[in-house]
Design a protein around this nucleic acid. Sequence first.
RNA 1: GCUCCCGUAGUUCAAUGGAUAGAACGGCCCUCUCCUAAAGGGCAGAUACAGGUUCGAUUCCUGUCGGGAGCACCA
Length: 582
Amino acid sequence: MTLAQQLESTLTAVLAQVLGEAITAAVSPANDLRFGDYQSNAAMVLAKSRKMNPRALAEQIVAAWPAAAIATVEIAGPGFINFRIKAEVYAARMQSAASDVRLGVSPVADPRTIVLDFSAPNVAKPMHIGHIRSTILGDSLSRIARFLGHKVITDNHIGDWGTQFGMVTWAWKNVLDEPALLANPLAELLRLYRHASDASKADESIREACRLELVKLQQGDAENFAIWTRCLELSKQGLQQIYTRLDVNFDHWLGESAYNDALAPLVDKLLAENLARESDGAVCIFSDGSVADQTKDPFLIRRDGEWTDFPMMIRKSDGGFNYATTDIATLEFRKNEWNADSVWYVVDHRQSLHFQQLFAVAGRLGLDSMDLRHIAFGTILGTDGKPLKTRAGDLPQLADVLDDSVAAARLTVNERSRLDTDEERAELAELIGISAVKFTELAHHRLSDYVFDLDKMVALEGDTAPYLFYSNVRSRSIFRKLEEPFVAGAPIELVEDAEIHLARLLSRFAEVVPAVLDDCRPNILTSYLLEVARAFHSYFEACPVLKAEGITRHSRLTLCHVTAQTLATGLKLLGIPVPERM
RNA sequence: GCUCCCGUAGUUCAAUGGAUAGAACGGCCCUCUCCUAAAGGGCAGAUACAGGUUCGAUUCCUGUCGGGAGCACCA
């Protein structure tokens, strides 16, 4: 149980005694240390509904507060109840955390099967800077959900069946450079794509030719299927190189093509059940009028002063299927084959309308018991403050961004590192470079647009991954110098403010990790880890460890140990490994 | 036009409806005979605007002004 939960439990018991009824009151961390460690506004909330004086009710709560509780209480302001955790309680927490790999984080009581759909690049094109957010956010969320005890299925729903294959196939047949393909498959595939893309824009007939190639592929044409198979294989190899470098793993790579056979029957079923109907030769799903507020109906749109249909198209007039069709089929598969309780889509916020429609359709298909979330995120901007356009064709490639970041890290490492060998330094530079990109992404609120500024990303000072690394390195360094063995688990005592403050933050790890999943926001964890690191650096300056003796020495070693464990565990949940030396 | 997201220090970002809005970078001062100064300790500096709900609003509601996005045969 976390400290907040213990306080809530005690407070509930006290309220039962004071008011004579069972009321669960919330306790939250105090915003300001001057007020204590935790606070509750229960007296103010309850007094209002009972027409009581909030301070008078708070007085009663304080009077009934058991002396043996983990915290002392006091009243402040209009009726806040402030809790101050006893130092010995923090000491006991640190003592047990020292030998607990979970650092006090309990598995959830109701583990669920969560399908996490993220990254999902279109194949035949290399990943670019725009793929960073989904890939890194999704990976981190999957790690955190797993750590909390959920059954997580990660699925890379790659775009392997769409328009771009019509283009690549057309270019493959017309301008393929076979030797170039053998020498550098990804570069040649990109060239083919760009060639077709540019040609389509310039020439209507080429665009039509590309579209026909796609239709042929989707109808099972043998030649096009062979080209597609080879493109897909080459593309996947290229993608996997990046995922390996990022240490991002998928349980499945069930792309759009995996659902191809399900699409025609799905559309027939929806037509038969009157959930969809024909419109201008296409098959669409319309509003069913179940949403009273028309502005909230995802199948209606206001145009020229009137509400008109904005249907979800599931079959084009040429017989081809849409993104939407595949998504419905995919959702049914995840429910039926994987027994998913939740499906979380880590996808650009620009697709929010699509997901509103998809989730509404899921409801009509009886899939509404599932927890479906569109985990939207904002746009990555250039240094000019303008969005990087996703299909401009000349965005920086993800692999290049990683290389640049590592190169920048290498400069700093060579200048400042205490590592001896070139191998160690190269390894550290790779670690810091990749981590800088990941940490920058995860430290931002996911819905914010953020400016992609490589110089700042790899600045390596301030609120960055290396700052966290450095805390860990300082801690580990002490243990390397230690002559006696460190045995975790012996009692400790906390005296200095810096010790108590560090212990207070470390004790909150168990509250912070679950909070990330409430709104799928890893930046809660990055903020917390920076706070821990800051507290550790202050502590490190204020409280000598190796010069101390007796219980003080053991206590300080324990804090160093728990700090290192917390940082390493927290960073691991973000997909970032931590170095022992730097 | 309609819908959604976003407007916080000079800059980049934080803040489950709580108390004197936190960091970092940049700027100005200090601190290495001391466990890694990639650090620590100080100083200065912000909620776009106008209403409303509330004991209490950066947060919720309405409107205005800015920025971005979406609005059926693309994914």
